[in-house]
Design a protein around this nucleic acid. Sequence first.
DNA 1: CCAGAATCTTGACACTTGTCAAGAACGAAT
DNA 2: ATTCGTTCTTGACAAGTGTCAAGATTCTGG
Lengths: 212, 212
Amino acid sequence: MARQVTGAARRVADAAEVLRDEKFNARRIELAEAALETLGELGFARTSLREIAQNSAFTHGVFHYYFSDKLDLICCCVRHYKAKCVTRYDDVVATATSRDALTEGFLAKLAATLQSEARMHRLWYDLRSQAMFEAAFRKDVLEIDKSLEAMIWRIASRYAELGNKRPASSPAALYALFDGLFQSALLKHLAGDKTAIAELLDEVRRLLPTVC
Amino acid sequence: MARQVTGAARRVADAAEVLRDEKFNARRIELAEAALETLGELGFARTSLREIAQNSAFTHGVFHYYFSDKLDLICCCVRHYKAKCVTRYDDVVATATSRDALTEGFLAKLAATLQSEARMHRLWYDLRSQAMFEAAFRKDVLEIDKSLEAMIWRIASRYAELGNKRPASSPAALYALFDGLFQSALLKHLAGDKTAIAELLDEVRRLLPTVC
DNA sequence: CCAGAATCTTGACACTTGTCAAGAACGAAT
DNA sequence: ATTCGTTCTTGACAAGTGTCAAGATTCTGG
C-alpha cells in the first residue's frame, strides 16, 4: 500500500513538474519573441538585453531567470524563428494544381514576405553571418539552412512534377540561387530601391522554367 | 613679379599639401588594414577600437586622429577590401585559352581563397548583413556587390565565349548562384566540415557548363 | 638649429554592457 | 492563513565602450 501511495504521489508530482516545465518553456518563447522584435530592429551587434527588455513588457532581470546568458537567449530566438519561416510556402505547394498557379502563388508569397517581414529576414542573414564567428550559433543555423534548402526543394520538385519534368540542379544549387537572389533583393529593398521586389519577381519568373 | 612669387609659392604649397594628403591617406589605409585583421577575427559585433589597436602597432588614439568615428573607419576598411578582392580572378580569365583551363583555374583560385582567406570573406558577409541595418554602410556595400557581380559575369562570359555560347542567365542570377554557394560552403568550412570545399568545387564544375 | 605644425600617446570622461544577488510579490498547497 | 517555492524587480558591480582633450613627441620649413 505504501508503494501505491508513493506511486500515486510520484505521478502527481511528475505531472506537476511537466506542467511547470511547459509554463517555463512558454515563457521562454514569449521572451524570445519579444527579443526578436528588437533584434530585427537593431541587429545582433547593437542589441543589448536592456534594450530588449525596454521594448517589451518585461524587466531585464527576467531574461536572466529564463536564459543562462545572452547567447542562450539568442539561440532560442533563432530556433523559434525557424519554426515560423520554414513552412511559409507549404500551402502554395499543397494547393497549386498547375505550373502557373504554383508560380503565381510562390511569387505572391515571396513579395509579401519580403515586404512585410524584411526585419526578420535581415536578422536571419545577420545571425547566419554571426555563426561564421560564433561557434555557439552554428548548429542551429546550419540546421535552419538545411530546412530552408528542403523548403525550396519541395517547391522546385512540385513545379517540375507539374510539368512532368525533374529539377535540373541539386537542392544545394537551387537554394543557393534563390537565397542569393532574395538576399540581394532584400538589401536593395531596405536601401530604398522601389524596384527591387519587382526585379526579384521578374528574375524568379524567368528562372523557374529553366531550372525545373 | 609679386604675382609670380605668390604663384610659385602657391604651387609649392599646393604640392606640399598634396604630399601631406597622400601620406595621410596612406596611413589611413595602413590603419584600415590593421583593423581588418581584428574585424576578420572577431566580426563587426565584437570588435572594439581598443581591440583593433592592441592587435596592431598603433595606439587607440591614432584611430581618432585619422577617422572621424568608428563607422568612418569601418567604411574605409570596406572600401579598401573591395580593391583587393574584385580582381581575384582576372588573371585566370585573361590567360585561359580553353574552357577546361578556365574551369580549373577558377576552381583552384576558388578553393585557395576559401581556404586561406576565410576570415576576410566572413567579414564581408558580416558587413553586408550590417548594411541591412546600418544605412552608412549601404552605398559602399552595394557598390562592392555590383563589382563582384561584374567579376562573376566576366568569368561566365569568357567561359561561354570559349565554347561559342552565351551565358544562359542574367548577371544578377549568376552572381546570386555563385555567391550563395560560396557563402554556404564558407559557413560549412568554418564549422569544421572537411568536405565543404570539395563539394563546392564539384557543384561549380557541374554547374558551369549548364549556365554558360 | 629652432619654431611651429603635424602626429601620436596617454589618461580621463560619461555611458553602456552582461551578470548577479538580495529581496519583493505572487501562487498554491497545507 | 501561513508557509514555501516560484517568479519577478531592483539596484549594484566590474568590465568595456566610443570619444575627446591635453600634452608629449616627431617632423619640417626657414
